[in-house]
Simulated scan of single mutants.
Amino acid sequence: EGPLWGWSDSRVIGLFATSLIGGILFVWWEWRHPQPMLQLRMFRRLAFSLNLLAALILFLGISFNLLLTPLFFQLVYQFDLQRTGLMLMALPIALSLTSPIGGRLSDRFGPRVLTIVGLLVTGCALLGLSTTTPVTPPLQMLSFLILLGIGVGLFQSPNNSTVLGDAPPEALGVASGLLAVVRTIGQTGGIALAGAIWVSQIFALNGGPVTPLTAAPPPILAGGYDVAMRVAALLAAITIVPSLIGGYALQRQIAPARPPVAD
């Protein structure tokens, strides 16, 4: 409701404050409870924590595509539901074909290299989608969706491997569950963020609110989409930092100890 209420509205500020206080109380309670739902000491492991954070940030960015690209096809390109669905199949097909390859390449070259390559490809694909206009050929958009699926596929398997590889052996089930939770939180939070940015930009380009939103002219809808996808590309670029540091930390842990140097 931020674009409609205004971001300085007391209700918006109050909800942000409530979520912050709730998060602090959750951490405090889990830390002091003798049998916590989530063992916070796991997060002292650098590779585990940072690569979980990388997954969270990336899924925030990917959610922009999940929400806005179908709307772009239907509202800007004026595609029907069947053609929209066929276009959207490109991403999951590319993802499903690339993920096993990413896992095998990760075993050969190490997870750090593959995660960074995957993030770079993902960022380029999102940036490419941000250049789409009402007159852009649909095949160009389709190619960027395929590229996005390849990038996520190259990232996901090595990143999961890094998280599980640095988790305590007795907590592998919890670590696997955390990966699923992070993915869900990233997707739901990303959809809310993407919608807020898209709507705010449409209102700004239109000079005021549009009711219903779908009544906005295609160039304005496309302008809101472009800005939102640039934010998604920025999130993919930010993800490189925790992924790089986390992969380096894991590599140092598993590196064989150097033999002592003789006098």
Rank of each mutant, 00 (worst) to 15 (best):
G102N: 04
G102V: 06
G102D: 03
R104C: 13
S106W: 02
D107I: 10
D107H: 11
D107G: 07
G110Q: 08
P111H: 12
R112Y: 11
V113A: 15
L114G: 08
T115L: 11
I116A: 04
V117W: 06
V117M: 13
G118Y: 02
L119E: 00
L119D: 01
V121C: 04
T122C: 11
T122W: 09
T122M: 01
T122P: 07
G123F: 00
G123L: 01
G123D: 00
C124W: 03
C124M: 08
A125G: 04
A125N: 03
L126M: 08
L127R: 01
L127D: 03
L127Y: 02
G128K: 03
S130F: 06
T131W: 14
T133Y: 12
P134K: 13
P134L: 13
V135K: 15
T136F: 09
T136Q: 14
T136H: 11
P137Y: 10
P137S: 07
P137N: 14
P138Q: 11
L139G: 06
Q140Y: 15
Q140H: 15
Q140S: 12
L142T: 13
L142M: 13
L142K: 05
L142P: 00
L145C: 05
I146L: 05
I146S: 02
L147H: 01
L148A: 08
L148F: 06
L148R: 03
G149R: 02
I150E: 01
V152Y: 10
V152G: 04
V152I: 10
V152N: 06
V152T: 09
F155L: 09
F155C: 07
Q156K: 07
Q156R: 15
Q156L: 13
S157V: 14
S157Q: 13
P158F: 09
P158Y: 11
P158E: 11
N160P: 07
N160F: 10
N160G: 14
V163M: 08
G165T: 12
G165W: 07
A167F: 08
A167D: 06
P168F: 06
P168H: 12
P168I: 15
P168T: 08
P169Q: 13
E170G: 09
A171K: 11
G173Y: 02
G173M: 04
V174I: 13
V174M: 09
A175K: 00
A175Q: 03
A175I: 01
A175W: 01
S176P: 00
S176I: 00
L179G: 04
L179W: 08
A180M: 12
A180E: 09
A180Y: 08
V181C: 07
V182Y: 06
R183A: 08
R183L: 13
R183C: 02
T184N: 14
T184Y: 15
T184R: 12
T184G: 13
T184W: 15
I185W: 12
G186M: 05
G186S: 10
Q187I: 14
Q187S: 12
T188F: 14
T188L: 14
G190F: 07
G190T: 03
A192H: 13
A192Q: 10
A192I: 15
A194V: 05
G195F: 05
G195L: 02
G195P: 04
G195D: 04
A196S: 07
A196K: 06
W198R: 00
V199Y: 02
V199T: 05
Q201D: 05
I202M: 01
I202L: 06
A204E: 03
L205K: 05
L205R: 05
G207I: 01
G207E: 04
G208Y: 10
G208A: 07
G208N: 10
G208M: 05
V210D: 09
V210F: 01
V210Q: 05
P212Q: 12
